[in-house]
Amino acid sequence: MSTSTANLEAAANQVVEDLASDVRGVLSSKELDSVPHIKALRQRVDAKVAIARELASEKAKLAARKAREAADQANAYAHDEPWQIAGAALAVGVLVGLLIGRR
Rank of each mutant, 00 (worst) to 15 (best):
K61P: 02
H79T: 12
S28P: 02
L95Q: 05
Q14V: 03
I51P: 01
R102N: 09
R42D: 09
K61L: 08
A20V: 02
V94D: 11
L41D: 05
D46M: 02
P82L: 05
S2F: 05
V35H: 06
P82V: 05
L55P: 03
A40N: 15
R65P: 03
M1H: 12
R44A: 14
A11S: 11
A76R: 11
E17R: 05
K30R: 08
P82Q: 08
E81R: 10
L62K: 06
A67Q: 03
G93L: 14
Q84N: 15
A71Q: 14
L62V: 12
K61A: 14
V94A: 13
A78F: 08
A88N: 12
S29E: 06
S4K: 06
S4D: 11
S2K: 05
Q73G: 00
K39C: 13
V92R: 11
S29R: 06
R53I: 02
A11P: 04
L90P: 00
G87P: 01
A56R: 00
A56D: 08
L62G: 04
D18P: 01
P36C: 08
Q73W: 13
A71P: 00
A70V: 13
N13C: 09
V23G: 00
A47W: 01
G97Q: 07
A86R: 11
A60R: 01
I51S: 11
A71W: 12
A86Y: 08
N13L: 12
R42M: 15
A52D: 01
W83L: 11
V49Y: 01
Q14T: 07
Y77C: 01
G101I: 05
V96E: 04
Q43C: 04
D46K: 02
